[in-house]
Design a protein around this nucleic acid. Sequence first.
DNA 1: TCATATTGTTGTAGATATACAACATATATA
DNA 2: TATATATGTTGTATATCTACAACAATATGA
Lengths: 80, 80
Amino acid sequence: MIYNRIKMLRTEKGLSRKELAKAVEVNFQTIGYLERGDYNASLELAFKLAEFFEVPIDMAFSPRPFKTLAEELAAARAAE
Amino acid sequence: MIYNRIKMLRTEKGLSRKELAKAVEVNFQTIGYLERGDYNASLELAFKLAEFFEVPIDMAFSPRPFKTLAEELAAARAAE
DNA sequence: TCATATTGTTGTAGATATACAACATATATA
DNA sequence: TATATATGTTGTATATCTACAACAATATGA
């Protein structure tokens, strides 16, 4: 199981699933499946999505659950 | 089509396909298929491989052909 | 040479990803 | 209210990924 931040990245851009789907050339229902975690993106689609959102691929996908923003902040502070 | 450096990363470590396959828990023939470009890894397998080789995922996989070492060197020098 | 390991090829089968249609529900907006 | 848009659910069909078996070809080493 691979976790993803597609929904967050999409809504942050104010896009509908249909619009995102068109941008990365998949069916709009496929975006829904990914966001709900029904199945994983293919590697090809993962690269397309990461490229579209202009983030490194492991910012959009992760084999482990993503940290919350609060956890990220705490980790960043601890790293200083 | 996604390009990969699995063969390079594997041989660099002096591993056979069978050994690598065992490490990432797939059939050894699956490694062969990936190295030959017969098909792409799933996102899950891509993460496993990147983690095993301790490289960022886009060092092991890319939607565009990888640069040769010579090109990488030239690019690195130009960036200074 | 013989034996063994490694890789490539072909084929079958199962699992997963994607497309697409139909319909339900919710939400926003005229 | 009525209409449109967005999302969720279910089902079918196709493509792609993975496992596994059998065999050929090549290399490596005793």
